[in-house]
Write a protein that binds this DNA or RNA. Structure first.
Lengths: 408, 408
DNA sequence: ACCATTTATCTATGGGTTAGATTTACCCCC
DNA sequence: GGGGGTAAATCTAACCCATAGATAAATGGT
């Protein structure tokens, strides 16, 4: 019944990941502390740390303790093990971020992208230029790259199957990307990337079930259950932005009507402002980021713009109702909010959204739910997809058995 | 990060459950066949079968093979190991079903229930009377009962926590039920029960992710991911019937507006008929089962009632849109439909629902989705909750480590 | 130089699995 | 009646995981 039977190697793999997560959280720590943090015995921690030292993933520094007893050795992730690149392919830009092996950002580069970039060659070229520029900025030779993670919107692949079925367009992307970059790559979609960022750096470390919701032009949810990303049958899970808020409601970019995104995406918020005050000057701001920035500015004391305030209130209600659907169906412990709309407007949105979720969720399902702005900083898509690339690298060197989706 | 680390005992537990599921599916089988079915080695199957034989869960019958070679021993679940009772506490009835240890139905009894049965004593009394009547009908002494599973609507409990938080009303139910029945009991909600039935007897055996949707007075979804029931932080997952279909739409029984249940529950379908043909005689049929039965009758050839046909079409569209939300968020491989509305109207609903899901789901997310009537026969709530009771019994005798939610 | 203390490592023992050897129980044939 | 071939069932050595507690290492204090 379990589609993939777990073996004792999986147990060891989990132990290694637990130790790596504890190291990421602590920055530097000791074997005894790792035993306390992970619940593993000191013998197991010793064995796992030995494996990671041998693999060059972890380094140690002998530290005189300044007290009696055997001196303590501090451990940390080996930043110098190599570089990992995370690439966020969005609608209007392609951003490549170089991380060290401790997943600290080293350098970044961005190239503009035409929104009609479903032409394979243009995407491949843009990704290659962004990666090359970022690596140059980081001073990293190609042989120092452990892996490149590339987030492609809408990419879909059969998880774990022996013959993955993928839309031809995406297959061509992957093949061409591999040829062009000449580096080990892994491809996934942005929702899985942000979920991975939350799992490794955010609330996913502390909670069994977390949903991280991205608000921007597009809107979606990364779902973490029992310490793993929910991918779904076709790696499509989390497309909550295209679940219904209002049957036959507002037209959505996807061609359907009434989607959550049509109400709480940046464009949806502009539509809400148009409904509140059709002649409002902000209703005709053409660029979404400018629009959201202007909303934030319009809310500054001492005189917040009443139409903008009403827009925020309505948006909070729509968002609360949509999050209540996630609560009703998935019932997570926490929901985190991420994305550039949240950075700009979170202070205004979050308190109202919390109230709205509790009001809109059935029964008292949302009574204990925590809704908060994500603590994952920077570009969480790039961070997450780089983390997926690191996991893939660790899998390739036999340190973890987690099945990272293959871009064959 | 994994909330509960898996140990080698968990691996053995999974092996035992795999063997048990294979036995349930096959009825009777051989060790070699079990090895082929489960993928375990013949040595492991031998060890597992030995454990199950020792525990009296499985029996063997020597069978001459009629061919050369060592004769084959047939194995089957030991029906005589004891009896398990599954109790479905619904709004208007309490039904107790007695199963043997191979989960075949032996006898049943039903008592009427007042819809205002949130009075603890009335529920406890009704459950006790139903269980006593069913056991009498089965000729089963109390000491022959391995466990009683009781499905209580709305029951919630913290899964796996050391100090479960549960609404007081439900706590009182559990305490009083244990006192009154004097039998080992486990309590869960109907959505978890139907998911368990689908996992053990339906599509959950063959697919990694399945959602089983119950349509009746109430509407909800049992969610199976990676061979396990999705419970959620407060055991509330699957309340899809109270996710939104239409913001500010039809009033729902739960006090909110626009819930899926208000459109595709039995009462919702009657509201749809009222919208289609306000003077239709069926619009005022008072009892929901009578109404649904009358709908089915009105659809018989050669002259199906046009208003009823239109009602079915609209309902299929609403249901398709609501299922599309499950596809967008959870992305399962299959969706099965169950419940008395489905038994009565499935032939008319399912083809249209399939088309609607594909049309309403974003992109081609639903392209490969299978939507079908569940193959789990009988009362799937009672079957499922009895299966949970069997799992609990197996856990109590140390044969599985699966954490069945405790009704302490 | 020795002792107490603390950290790190080692070891025997517990759990799981499998490949392949061995045993068992049959049928067929001489 | 016995031997050979065959297929099922069982056993065994070797692999994986974990931990409790013993042992070793490295320090500071006396």
């Amino acid at each position: 019944m379990a589609p993939t039977r777990r073996t004792s190697r999986d147990i060891r793999s989990e132990s290694r990941l637990d130790v790596l997560h504890a190291l990421l959280t602590a920055g530097e720590t000791t074997r005894n502390e790792l035993a306390r943090t992970t619940g593993l015995s000191t013998a197991t921690v010793a064995t796992v740390v030995s494996d990671l030292l041998t693999g060059g993933i972890v380094t140690e520094a002998r530290v005189a303790s300044g007290r009696v007893g055997r001196p303590t050795t501090l451990l940390r992730l080996n930043q110098d093990r190599g570089r990992i690149v995370g690439v966020d392919v969005a609608e209007t830009y392609i951003r490549a971020v170089v991380f060290d092996a401790a997943l600290d950002e080293v350098a970044a580069a961005e190239v503009a992208a035409d929104e009609r970039h479903d032409e394979t060659e243009e995407v491949v070229d843009g990704v290659a230029r962004a990666v090359d520029a970022a690596l140059a900025r980081a001073g990293t030779p190609r042989d120092g790259v452990l892996g490149v993670g590339i987030s492609l919107p809408g990419s879909m692949q059969r998880w774990g199957g022996s013959s993955p079925v993928m839309p031809n367009a995406v297959w061509r992307h992957v093949d061409r990307l591999r040829e062009r970059l000449g580096l080990p790559i892994v491809v996934d979609n942005p929702l899985k990337a942000i979920a991975t960022a939350e799992l490794w750096f955010g609330q996913g470390r502390r909670h069994s079930s977390t949903i991280t919701v991205n608000l921007g032009t597009g809107v979606g949810a990364g779902i973490i259950l029992n310490g793993a990303i929910l991918r779904g049958a076709t790696n499509f899970a989390g497309e909550w932005g295209h679940s219904l808020l209002a049957l036959d409601g507002r037209p959505c970019r996807c061609g359907r009507r009434g989607c959550v995104e049509a109400y709480v995406g940046a464009l949806g918020m502009q539509r809400t402002l148009e409904a509140v005050a059709p002649e409002h000057p902000l209703a005709s701001v053409p660029l979404q980021r400018d629009f959201i920035g202007a909303l934030a500015a319009a809310l500054e004391p001492p005189e917040p713009d009443p139409a903008v305030t009403e827009t925020i209130q309505r948006t909070a209600r729509y968002l609360g109702a949509a999050l209540a659907d996630l609560v009703a169906i998935v019932n997570p412990e926490t929901i985190t909010l991420t994305g550039w709309t949240v950075w700009a407007l979170g202070d205004h949105l979050v308190p109202a959204v919390r109230r709205s979720v509790v009001a809109e969720a059935p029964g008292d399902a949302a009574a204990d739910l925590e809704v908060e702005v994500s603590t994952v900083r920077g570009n969480s898509v790039a961070t997450g997809i780089a983390t997926i690339a690191l996991e893939r690298f660790l899998s390739d060197v036999g340190l973890v058995t987690t099945r990272v989706p293959t871009a064959l």
